[in-house]
């Protein structure tokens, strides 16, 4: 295993939008960086500032919210 640092990004995806896009990217075998940890939320409206702070608090290097 390489010891080089890789960013950990917590990604909050809306079930109906970006999660679908991620799924499509997957089935289309597109290449993208493996640094994101996707979390599916029922809708971007479920998003709350406390999710973002909780992610950072628990050691995320970045947070990405996508509707």
């Amino acid at each position: 295993m390489s010891t080089e640092w890789e960013p950990k990004i917590v990604a909050f995806f809306c079930n109906w939008c970006t999660y679908g896009a991620a799924d499509l990217a997957g089935v289309s075998r597109m290449q993208y960086p493996p640094n994101i940890r996707a979390i599916r939320i029922p809708c971007a409206g479920r998003m709350s500032p406390k999710f973002i702070l909780a992610a950072f608090r628990n050691g995320a290097d970045g947070v990405w919210v996508s509707g």
Binding site: C17, T18, G20, A21, L24, V63, W64
Partner: peptide, 18 residues
């Protein structure tokens, strides 16, 4: 460190870009 985006479920290419 914090990003927001809007990607429709058909936009796999945009997803990869973002």
């Amino acid at each position: 460190r914090l990003h927001f985006s809007w990607i429709s479920s058909a936009e796999a290419t945009k997803f990869v870009d973002v």
